[in-house]
Structures are given as C-alpha cells and as structure tokens.
Design a protein around this nucleic acid. Structure first.
Lengths: 409, 409
DNA sequence: AAACGTTTGAGAAAGAGGAACACAAATCTT
DNA sequence: AAGATTTGTGTTCCTCTTTCTCAAACGTTT
C-alpha cells in the first residue's frame, strides 16, 4: 500500500515527467536510438517525441545527429545520442583488497577508471575516505560540475540504503560507519552520495551492461572473501526494508557447519567463500587474488587436491543456488566476483547439484552464466546507482540548467 | 527493461485510467472513504475526484452516501462506499484436506463461503473440478453476471501463472494439470480464471485483510502438509519468471537430511511440515488436522515428547526464517497455515534460532506474528487475485457496463 | 440567533500535454 | 523520372486536470 505522502494521482505534469524519464532511461540503457525507435518503444506519437527530445537537447542531455540511409525506403530518422558529458556520475568502490574510482557518463560511457590495491586488514574509515578522494580528485578536472548527478559507492558490507550507514563490514572491520556522510564532507563536490552493497551493485551492473541485459528476473551471486547477492525483480533490485536484502552468503546451508565471521555458523559463505576454497586446497586462507589464481591453475592442471577443493566449492555453490532458485524463480543466474573466474571449472558440478536440489519446474528454463564485467562490476553498478534519480525523474536534471526556472524558484 | 510491446509512454487516456484505478484500489483495500480522504490520498483536486467518482457511480462500482457531521467545522464530505455487489469475484481453493469456494464482493465483503472436507489422497482432476462446481453453483444465484470480474483459484502446488497449469502438486498427486482450462470449461460462468499457489495467495490475503495490513515488505510462511511462502516486495507479490517463486519449503536446509516428496532431500519441509511434526511426536504422519490438534494439546499439557517435537519444529522454523530474513530483509514475517496454530507454542524457540542465524541488522526491527485469517487465508487471497485486473485497470470493468462504448466497439 | 471562519461540493474557464491530421522532406524502387 | 514509403514539421483538436469563483454545510463566537 502507499506510504503516507506517496500520492498516487497523475496529472499533466507527471505525464510529461514520466515520458521524459522513459526516454532518458531508454537512451541510458540501450544507447543511441533513432527518434523513430523511440516512437516504437514508448508508443508516443512523432509529435510528442519531437517535443520531448527538443527539451532534452536544450538541456544538454542528448544530441541529435543525422542518420545514415538504412537501405530501406523512407526518410532517415535522426539518431538521438546520450551526451556522455551532459550528465556524469562518480563511482567509488571499497573492496577488501582494493579501492576503485570511476567517472561514468550518461549512456554508460566510462570516462575514467582507476583501481589501487590496499592492504587487507582493518584500515580506519578516515584513511579510506582520504584514499578515495585522492583517486577521484584528478578525474574532476574535466567535469562540468553542473553535469554531476551524484556519487555512488559500493562497499563490501551491509549498508542501510536510506542514509548510507555501513552497519556491518566484517571483512573491513567496520561497524556503523556513516560512509555517505564522511564522503559528502570529504569530496570536493556538491552532490548526493548513495552507498550500497557491492553485490547489489554488481548485479545492477550486469543487468545494465553485462551478462543479464534484457533479462528482468535475475539472481546475481557474487563470491569474494564474503559472499553476497542480489535479485532483480521485474528489473528492479530487491533491497528489502532497509536495504539489507541479498545477504545470501549468510543463509545457513549447513546448520552444524563452521563458524562464520558474522557470528553465526554454517553460513553459505563458509562453504564457498574465498577462504573456504583456499583452506580446502591446503593454502593459507588470506592468500587473496594470487592464491586463488594458483588454485585455479592447479585445478586446470588436474592437481587432485585443488580439483577436489574446487569441486566441493562447486557442489555447495549448486546447493545454495538451488535454494535460491526455489525461493526466487529467476530466469537467469549470474555468477560474479572470484566465482566468475572459478565458474568455468565447476559449471558441470554446479549443474548437477542444482538438478538434485532445485524443483524441476523452477530449473526448467533456468540459465547459469558467469558475469561479463569482471572485478569492475560493483564500480560500474555504483555509477548506475548514482544515475538512478536522473532516470526516475529527468526533469530534475533539466531544471538545474534552466535559468528561467531557477529564477522563479 | 521493458518487454517488447510494453509501451512506457503516458497520455491523457492512461492518466484517467490510472487515476480511476488508484481510487478503486484505495476503496477496495481501505474500505469506505470520504471524497476528501481521496483528495488527500491521491493528491488530485476536488474537481478531479468529483469527475472520477461520478464515473464510478455511473458504472455501479461505488455509492455515495451523506456523511455524518464530524464535529469539526466545514461541510461534511460524502462517503464513497465500494459497492459489494458492483463487482464480485469467485474464489476457489484446492487443499490437501479440503475444498473451498467463496463469493467475495468489491471492498472485500465475503458474501458466501463454503468448505468441504475431502479425503486425503489422489483424486482425479475431474472429480475435484466437479466438486468445486457444485460448491459454487448455489452461490451464483444471486450474482449479477455482468459484475463478475473473475475466478481465483488457490492450489497446494506449483502453478505456472501465465496459463494456470499446475506443474507439480505432490500432495494432490498432480502433474501438469491444466486446472484453469478445466475450470473455465466446467464453471457455468464466462470469466477469466486465475490459478496460483495457496501460500502466495495466503500472503496476499494477510497483506490486504489480515496481519500485514499496511506493511509493504512482508514474508509469509505457510506450513501445512507442504510448506510454502511468499514475499511481498513494495506491496507486490514476488512471483518469479513463471510464478514458481516462494517454494521455500524446498530450500535445502539440511543437505544430508531426509528424502522429500519433491524428489530432493533435506528440504525445509521435511523438518517443519505437518508430517515431520507428527512423526517427531510419535504419531502417524497422515493424521491430519485432528492429530495436529492432539500434539498441540499434549504440548500445552507439558507432555515431554510432544513438547520436544514442537520445539524441534520451532528451532527449524527459526533457522529457515533466519535464512529468508537474510535473503529478503522483510519488515514483518507472518506465519500461517497449521504453523499459525503452532506458533504461540514456539515463538520463543523461533526467536532464539532467528537471533542466532539471522544477521543483526536484518533482525533489528523484524517482527514475527501468526496469521490473522486462519485456514481461509488462501481462499480470500484467491478472491484478491481475481480482483487484481480490476484494480489495475478499473476502466475495463466500467466499459462492460457502458452501452455507448459497446456499440462503438 | 446571527455573523463569521472553515471545509467542501459545483460549475465554468483555463492550462498543459499528447493525438490527429496535413504537408513536406528524404530515401528506395521501378 | 515517377511513385511508394517512412519520417520530420507545424497546426489544430481532444482529453484531462487545475484553477477560480461561488454556494452549501458545518462549528464557533458574540
């Protein structure tokens, strides 16, 4: 039901906003489209599309360029291009092993992207915020500050969406860190800061730009040191009341299993997390990226211990996915993070476990694929998060540039 | 992203439809409201509301009655009442132990409801369809057929939403039964037939009329012979690609556990289903309602074996709920079905297990409550399912009654 | 009891937005 | 070169909501 204050009535103004936003969303997600494509996608008339595009051109969000003759009869329809400088988002990522920053333009253009390793362990929030600011600073030189729509941040932890408070991040050693606030203070820009879990954003990125384009019921499973995930329901992320949804790494799959960093035991993470793989392979649990590479290489070389470790992870991966498939009935499962690299080795084992533990109807048309974006998925998702308000109401961004309205407001 | 053919553009016509539907939905869900309440809820003006209400009155969906003076200054705003005969839905339920039928009016009025026991075991579809038709037939005498919006059916099985095909119903002995089609042929009415899983509909009913009114992120867990559930995301049911979502009874919580009717092993259902409780209490697994009553009575009388059985079910109930809470981050968990009766006995045990296995942030503001609708929840939800097209587009129903449009069409 | 402020309904006019239509432009086909 | 096809342009029309004014119905105050 409707939240108080969430008015449901529609009027002319909301119609225009909604249509404007629909066009902006299509252009951001699908890339350049002809006006005539937009007529087809929206169901609006040529006249209406013309007016709306005109507004977007005036606002600097899109550019119209003549189209090449298509070889078919009829007058060519001009191409409407998202202007990658017309709106830009800053994307940040706080991972266990690295920090990343990116500048992403409207339409998905990655203007800049930088990643630096960071020592695994418990750094102070201040240190990390400083490092992020230094990563971003050089990128800001060629940004029109009026075009900055916001800052998105991906964190390896449990984040309260409403205010960007990091509630728990065992692998960073954080508890109740007001990351959004700290970044808002420290960044040399004036823009809203949105923080979310890295797996939630990885899933969003794979949906928009990666392995799940065009699929609207997607389960994203991301395994790194921690295991997280995200479900896209009708194309919208399932975030729960506070934004804590998708903590699939902590579903108890083995109630008498090993202790987990979260304080519980038998969590899925203790079976398929990076540490579990390394321990099973006989290595130190904190070997990180390099050690994982060794295990994968050894398994490829048919080393029995590595092979067994990988298979066991694959089996538990399948069991957990089966559980989620029964609960959520997705059309597609995307496996990301470190598991993305591991996946080709274990796809058969995973399939077997899924076919044992998932209900036949739910796995009938199910597809499982590795992610397509690699380690940058959460960062790209952070940019998408920052773009979301623009896509939901493009008029807000246009107003910023319209002096007439600024004066009257 | 948008499905092909799912046009996103808004125009005057869609605005009116949307506003009309918003009013219809508020009235159906909240009950009688004054015009002035509707102004507040929708954000539309008095004039707009007047016009829309006028259309609904002309269509027979609502009635306006004078309001009593409220004790506050100002002219009293007339009350707009949903007309319980202006639109009616037929609700059916196929349960393991019983069949039910109901006639429900717009606004939620239950005009009639009948339930008959049925022998547990594998009856033919034909027999069940015949029984349902005989249950419904006397109810149809006082129904205006133009007011019939549809037929909703709750089934203890996995149902493909698009065409109402019952894919699997182990406890009924059904596989790939085209129930919607059969009912459409057999029922003496012309109306769309919608079939869904009983737990999905139980959750919908608890949200509209029961223990979850006003809460938009709800996990509903229903335990009978089978265990099912449903998540409401932003007030909308999570059904998955095909409608198979919510099969939480078949999440593997104990991968080396007992064999399940679904063909897998260690499913949650094997730990908290009706049979599990009875076997643990030392009774025959198929004792049904009566045997469950015995166990509950014995546990209340401090019988050690019954007490232990109940506690063990409670513990596993908590473990499974914790898993789902970590995955879905609901605001409220509603426990229904047989577990609704059991819940008062085990609430403490459940809470303990949840606090061990659920992440602290996710259980921080979590509430767990038993359902409020008893065994009729799925039937009432079936009615809500049948009303859904009306709530999504009220104009469709109004057209049916408008001769002018019928002629021109 | 009458006057006044408040809230709401009624009706007409205005405003906003997209649809419909006619025409022109650009392309391919014959 | 003429015709068919597709699309942009510009004007008019239609639908729907808002705005504005006035009246009705209520409580409160004097």
């Amino acid at each position: 039901m409707s939240v108080p204050g969430d008015l449901v009535g529609q009027r002319s103004e909301t119609v225009r906003r909604s249509n404007l936003s629909a066009i902006v969303r299509e252009l951001h997600v699908r890339g350049p489209l002809s006006r005539s494509d937009l007529v087809g996608l929206t169901g609006l008339t040529r006249s209406a599309i013309r007016g709306l595009i005109g507004e977007l051109v005036a606002g600097g969000l899109v550019t119209e360029v003549p189209n090449q003759p298509a070889g078919t009869p009829g007058r060519p329809s001009p191409i409407v291009q998202p202007n990658a400088r017309g709106a830009v988002a800053i994307a940040l990522e706080v991972n266990v092993d690295s920090l990343a920053a990116a500048l992403v333009g409207f339409g998905g253009t990655v203007h800049q992207l930088a990643r630096v390793d960071r020592p695994r362990g418990h750094l102070s929030v201040e240190a990390i915020v400083d490092d992020l600011v230094e990563l971003v600073r050089p990128m800001l030189r060629d940004v029109d500050h009026d075009a900055l729509v916001g800052v998105g941040v991906a964190v390896a932890g449990i984040v309260r969406r409403s205010d960007g408070l990091v509630r728990m991040a065992p692998n960073l050693g954080w508890r109740d860190v007001p990351l959004a606030e700290r970044l808002r203070e420290a960044l040399p820009v004036v823009a809203p800061v949105w923080v979310a879990n890295e797996a939630d954003l990885g899933g969003l990125a794979e949906h928009r730009r990666g392995a799940a384009i065009g699929v609207d019921q997607v389960l994203y499973v991301m395994g790194e040191v921690g295991v997280g995930g995200n479900m896209l329901v009708d194309g919208r992320p399932l975030i729960g009341v506070d934004g804590y949804a998708g903590e699939i790494g902590h579903m108890p799959v083995n109630p008498d299993g090993q202790a987990c960093a979260c304080g519980s035991r038998g969590c899925w993470e203790t079976e398929i997390g990076e540490r579990a793989l390394l321990v099973r392979a006989g290595l130190a649990p904190d070997g990180g990226r390099e050690a994982i590479g060794q295990v994968i290489a050894a398994a490829n070389a048919a080393d029995p211990r590595a092979r067994a470790a990988v298979d066991e992870v694959g089996r538990w991966l399948g069991i957990g996915i089966a559980s989620l498939v029964n609960i959520l009935n997705p059309q597609l499962v995307v496996v990301g993070g470190v598991l993305e690299r591991l996946y080709p080795l274990v796809s058969r084992t995973v399939d077997e476990a899924v076919s044992v533990y998932a209900l036949p109807p739910a796995r009938e048309h199910l597809r499982l694929v590795p992610g397509a974006l690699g380690e940058d998925a959460p960062t790209l998702g952070a940019a998408e998060l920052a773009f979301e308000p623009l896509l939901a109401d493009a008029a807000l961004q246009l107003r910023l540039r319209s002096p007439a309205v600024l004066v009257s407001a």
